[in-house]
């Protein structure tokens, strides 16, 4: 049997553009506010009254021929046994070649210490009534007031300054038999996740039924995030 290749099919017909995936990802992975592991393209086209609006969810494509992996000088960016594109901060020198290599802008680099503004937030939302972000984090014994410790199972809970970060398909959740947070959170069932090498898996069936497309096929990266149907 072929090796496992995790992938995701995004049904654009089902997607309602609610951004629940983006919020779930932020919460699950402790993603800094200016980064977007789970991202989206909003495209407004035409002139009134002949206009169209499209919302296209995006994330790391976990490419089979990932340029970030090919160009990483230390193999910090690597392909896992089950086809995920992952990053090992311990090996990383912070050269940002992975981020420069990615044709999709899916890799973000922490030029500064992440969450600085929250860690040092000394002003409560309502003076005399609510605690500050820094106080909440301190009481909780966690780095951030809103922090998911489960993320730290396979990657630093908050990534250090100088290293890149990106979607991992929630590898820490996959390791315990759960689906990625964005898939769980999608109210429309627009994200279909599974093993693309298994012909009976839900994404494989979706691919067989529709004509899937990928982002920038001309780049030759063979993305494992595919899109089906559209308006």
């Amino acid at each position: 049997m072929a090796k496992k290749q995790y992938g995701m099919v995004i049904d654009l017909h089902a997607c309602v553009g609610c951004s629940a995936c983006d919020i779930a990802c932020k919460r699950e992975n402790n993603v800094p506010h200016s980064f977007a592991w789970s991202n989206h393209i909003i495209e407004t086209r035409g002139t009134f009254p002949d206009v169209s609006y499209r919302y296209i969810p995006t994330l790391c494509n976990h490419c089979t021929d990932a340029p970030c992996v090919l160009n990483c000088p230390t193999t910090a960016m690597y392909k896992s046994e089950d086809g995920l594109t992952l990053h090992d901060p311990d090996k990383c020198i912070g050269c940002a070649t992975c981020a420069v290599s990615c044709p999709y802008g899916a890799i973000f680099v922490n030029h500064e210490e992440p969450f600085e503004e929250i860690r040092h937030d000394e002003s409560p939302a309502i003076a005399g009534c609510t605690s500050t972000g820094a106080e909440v984090a301190k009481r909780g014994g966690v780095p951030l007031p809103v922090y998911n410790p489960a993320r730290a199972a396979t990657l630093p809970g908050v990534r250090p300054r100088g290293v890149p970060e990106k979607c991992t398909f929630c590898d820490h959740r996959l390791a315990v038999g759960e689906l990625p947070a964005c898939v769980e959170a999608c109210p429309a069932g627009a994200r279909i996740f599974g093993d693309l090498n298994d012909p009976d898996s839900a994404p494989s069936r979706a691919i067989a039924k529709y004509h899937p497309k990928v982002r920038n096929p001309e780049k030759g990266t063979r993305p494992n995030v595919l899109y089906i149907r559209d308006y």
Binding site: N71, C72, T75, D90, K91, I93, G94, R161, G162
Partner: peptide, 17 residues
């Protein structure tokens, strides 16, 4: 970003880079 890790380039082999 992590200059102290520079030596790890010589410990990890990636001829495609």
């Amino acid at each position: 970003g992590q200059p102290m890790n520079m030596f790890k380039t010589w410990l990890n082999f990636n001829p495609t880079a």
